[in-house]
Every structure is written in C-alpha cells, then in structure tokens.
Design a protein around this nucleic acid. Sequence first.
DNA 1: CTTATTATG
DNA 2: CATACTAAG
Lengths: 286, 286
Amino acid sequence: MTITVTTANLNGIRAAERKGFEKWVQKHTPDVLCLQELRAPQDAIDSIFEQYAEDYKNAGKIAQPEGLSTIDQVSVFKGRAGVGELSSLEVLDKRVGLPGDGEDADTGRWTEMDVKTPQGYVITVCNLYNHAGNMDDPTKMEQKYHMLDAIMERAAQLRDEAAHGGKQSLIVGDFNIAHTDLDIKDATTNETHSGFSPKERAYITKLIDEYEFVDVVRDLAGDIQGPYTWWSNRGRAFENNVGWRIDYQFATPEIAQTARGFEISRAKAWYARWSDHAPLTVTYDV
Amino acid sequence: MTITVTTANLNGIRAAERKGFEKWVQKHTPDVLCLQELRAPQDAIDSIFEQYAEDYKNAGKIAQPEGLSTIDQVSVFKGRAGVGELSSLEVLDKRVGLPGDGEDADTGRWTEMDVKTPQGYVITVCNLYNHAGNMDDPTKMEQKYHMLDAIMERAAQLRDEAAHGGKQSLIVGDFNIAHTDLDIKDATTNETHSGFSPKERAYITKLIDEYEFVDVVRDLAGDIQGPYTWWSNRGRAFENNVGWRIDYQFATPEIAQTARGFEISRAKAWYARWSDHAPLTVTYDV
DNA sequence: CTTATTATG
DNA sequence: CATACTAAG
C-alpha cells in the first residue's frame, strides 16, 4: 500500500489551467498534491480546487467532491506567490504560515497538512515556496534567508516530533536553491547568482546534516547529474536541458526509508509544459 | 488611372503583425496607407515600416525600398495612440500634429502628407486618431472635444485651399464617433455613451455641412444600415455584426466626386481579424 | 475582451 | 521569456 506525493510549481494556476494542467491532475490524482506559485485570488483558487475535487471523484480516488481536503494561502501581494495543498487521504489538521511569520502570515509561501496514510501512519506534509532572491537586491536576499531560518526552526520541531517512532514529516516544494554541482547544469557561472550561492546552499546542507531530513530524490537517483525540476523560460534552456533541481521532497528518516521511486514529468512523452517547473512525484510505501 | 487610400486602426501594430496584418499589406499595397493606434515605440515602428517598404518593392509598387514615403507620430504616453502614414506616390511634404496642439504636439494622433497623384493632382491626406472618450470622465470628453475643435480649424483651412480648383484634401481615420442611426447597430442604447452622443455627432455634421467635406463611404453606400468598421472585442459583437462606423474618409468636393468604390475587409473570405477595426479602402479616379 | 504598461521571477 | 497587474479602449 503506497501513497504518492507531488510538488509542482505552476507559475500561475490559471495559466497552467489554460495549458492543460488539469489533464495531469486527472491522470495522476496524487494522494497529496502540493502546489506553489498559484498567483491567483482566493475565488479563482476556490473554483479550480473544486474542479480538482470533481476530478478526484471521477478518478475514483474519493467518494464525493467533499472528500478532497484542501488548504491554501494567498499572498497579500496580488498576483504573487500563493501555495495550496490537496489530499484525498484522511486529514487530521491543516495549518498555514511558518513560526517566524508572525503578523506577516499572509505571504502565500507555507501550508501544512497532517494526513493519515492507508497503513495508519500520520504524516505532516509541509508545502513551501521560497523567495527567488536577487543578488543585486539585498532586501530580497534577506527575505530569502529569513524564510530559510524559519524553515530551519520548523524542521527542528519536526525532527524532534519524528524521533523514536513519532510522527513523520515531509517538507516539499520550491526552495529556489540548487544544493550541489549535481543539481545545476552550469555550476561555475552560477556561484554568484541567487539560487546557487554558498550561503544558500549551506541551508540545504544544514537541513540534511543538522535536522536529519533526507533529500529523497537524490537518495533514489544516486550521484548522477540532475535530475532537474526547473528550466529558465529564457533561451532554449528546456530543449537543451539546461536546468536546476530546486524543487525537493525532504523526509524524516523513517518515511524516507519507505520511498520507492520518483517521477519528474518532463521525461514523459505525454508531458505538455504548463510551467517553467515540472511536477515531482515520489511514491512512499507507508 | 486610380489611387487607393486605406485607413486602418491596428490596435497595436506589433499585435497586428503577429496576427498576419503584413499579408494584407502585401496583398493591397494601397497608394496611401493611414494607420492608427500603432501603440509601439519609434524603433519598432521604424523596423516594421522598413518591412512594408520591402513589401511594396516586391509587389512592384515602388522601385526601391527608399521609394516608400513614411511619416509617423508616436505618443508621449508609452504604448498608447500613435499614427503613421505611408505612400508609394510622390510626396511633396509631410507634417505632424494639429494647429491646436501647440507644445503638446506629441499626442500620436495626427499626420499629414501632400501626395502627387498619377494624373498630377496634389492632395493633402490627413490621418487622425481621436480620443475614445468616456462619459464618466469629463476630462477625457474635454480632450475629445478639444481635438474635434482642432480638426474643425484645420478643416476650415483645407476647405479654403480646395476652393475654386485648389489643392484637394482627405481627412481619414478613426474619429471614434458614429454619425447617424445608420452608423451604429444599437442607436437608442448608445445615445448616452461616448461615441454616439448628440454633441459628438454634431461635429461630424458640422464637418459635412459647414466645412463641405463629403463622407465618401456614406455617399457611395447610400442610406443603408452600416457598413460598420469597428466591433467591440467584448461579447460576440463581431460574429453578430453589432458594429459601429467610426472610421471615415472625408473628402473635399472635387476629389469626392472621383470616388469609384470602397471596400471594408471584413466582408472578404480571406480576412483574418488582427484588430477590433477593419481596414477601409476607397478608390479615387484622380 | 484586448493591447499595451509595469514588476517579479 | 512568461505570468501576473494596471490603465486604456
């Protein structure tokens, strides 16, 4: 009995809908679907998520549309960021925002769901969209580091909860950071760019080494170049596979051990590109 | 020996290019081509007009690309208005702006060319794009009336020049006013809207009655409903022919008498819609 | 509804 | 290069 968890940055859910993303949803209906960069107002998100609920029902994943649990966080900045999380599993709790967010919660960058797996385990699935950052704009880098600090804080809590057979966790989404040379096509030219600077990469290392989260896709793929999840819209980056791996699934050790495989939709013949990111799905035997 | 004069509001020359307007140019190569709403910066206009010069050369209308005369006026407001005029005839003079414009000349709404016809007549061709206006915004209506006042002033000069066998004139373009019930599908509901208010319509009447300009298309078409030149992008206006006649060719009496026929491209099977306006071409035997 | 602009990624 | 926004028509 396995579950599938997908993370997909849509770069505008309405634009992705126009380009056929819903066909992908109908085909895959992952047990947990984590979406980033919805870039849409609440009413648009509500009506699209209702359609997805119908899709899950028609695919036989849930008995009724009300059987799909959803949570989302729209940004206070119109047309920017925005994250949402959907699950056909039993959902015990849903939360939005990070500890450090404070009053400033409506950044549209973090949601959580506690889901119950078919085998009866409870897993916290955290869904995030980090700032892109810009080396020429220190305030934007500060926002990026600030969110990374908050993620570390939450990761510490989740690690402690997971210890000694406790509640396991996933932290998935768009970190906007490639971790190592394997995670970026052009490492040398990008060391001075936001997304591959040493300071940013150190946060990913810290998440793995200090908070004991496992980079599931790297573990499954081994030490190969790639696989990438994002390709710039500029030039022929997608066609030439000049990509970055900036979308991740990090898992606490126990659930990481159950990871059976992953799929990045780019490789598939039926894949129609509806975003500069490709969806990343991991199958867990849990 | 006839000449063709076309007026076409492109609603963005770059968008029109993407949709195949250049094919229309290659097919028709009118002797005088008056364009409105270019909505593009000078460098974009320059390079597109150079392409049109090649098209005229390839069509055998001119000997070399340099044989096409062009004049244009870009608006000081980026991405708005903008008019241009092209001719394969001998051009004696070119001017931009209206008398009333003063310092404020770069409104992108008026150009003139003095062209010499194959029969040796000199004709001033004025090309205009009037403000759309908005009944809820008095300053916008004031701008529209102000331009109409300036047009009347120029029309008075041109009428005087044309008297007793003098230099004839055309005033063509987008007036953003339907003159009579015949010039609009839905007259009653639009009397309170900009474009069909009594005050605006009176300017067209004045141009005809006081300044003796002939509404060439109405003269040729007779008292029928239509033909329209503009259809709203909203709803199914184009499909249902819910249109307005707001693009005109006004002529001094002598040249008006030589008008042999007109064509509005909408009626043609090959017509691909690249704007909310359709091009209007009149053939003059002059 | 469509084309522009702008900011953001 | 693409998706938003806003202004304008």
